[in-house]
Amino acid sequence: MTKPEDFYALEKPIAALKEQIDALLLAGEPGFKEKVAALRLEIETEWQKLQPRLIPSQIVQVARHPKRPLTLEYINALMTDFMEMHGDRRFGDDPALVAGLAFYKGQTVAVMGHQKGRTTRERIDRNFGQMNPEGYRKAYRVFREAEKFGFPVITFIDTQGAYPGIGAEERGQAEAIAFNLKVMSGLRVPIVCVIIGEGGSGGALGIGVGDQILMLENAYYSVISPEGCAAILWKDQSAVQQAAENLHIRAADLLKLGVIDKIIPEPPGGAHIDPETTFKNTDKIVHQTLTKLKAKTADDLVDERYAKFRKMGVYVVS
């Protein structure tokens, strides 16, 4: 089987147009707005040609794009006064997860998300957004604070998966994730989860149980990475494309399966081409979602959340 083209090669014309936009914005000369608008239209035209042709393994590349907006950028764009909370009070602090309190639309929320890092240095320091048990336990601490003080919880999901390391196993990676699943299922405040990039298996799910699961149009969410699946089921690393297709990892697939509740549209070219619009779209849907959830009683929230996950799965009774 021939290897499909990299998304990074396919997006070159769009990336070039985006560079022109950036240059115009930087220079800020008279008439730049019209020129930018015209370039945006060109991007849209290019994207309309490209998007329908993208296969799942290329969507995974969009979701992993090095320029794709990261959790902290969403927090800074949507919220104010973010105060980060560190540490699990048991072992350490996990820089792969940022968590804390912030104001969203004038109200305190607990917010958290995987943070992959942008520069090489930061990526290494943040373990590429792959959490260790102390990260899940830090999240747990913040969930409890949110519940105590009645703050809604917003989580941003963007990870390849929980970290598979010796220390992670020694400190109970599985228990840390399992415990959060149980706690989030019963938490007596609204929880909105937003899958912004990579929804990597249990590592994503460990902060991914909510009343509403929102997902960026070009994010992916999967039980296993396409690479991992290819290695196990096909015993062939080049089967990534088939694995990605079979796993049904795109937002539209997951909406149909009932795994997610709503898709957040991305601007032409993907989130990284126009982060401002991405944040605006995200803000709008998160706000709508949270407004509806805040009208519910804690008992209703917990019952409806249970019922929502309770009905997931496909089987027959015969």
Partner: peptide, 15 residues
């Protein structure tokens, strides 16, 4: 989790 049922298997962890 069973890979052949994709994210539906993942959701059984929550359920």
């Amino acid at each position: 989790a069973r890979m052949q049922e994709g994210a539906l298997s993942l959701m059984q962890m929550v359920k």
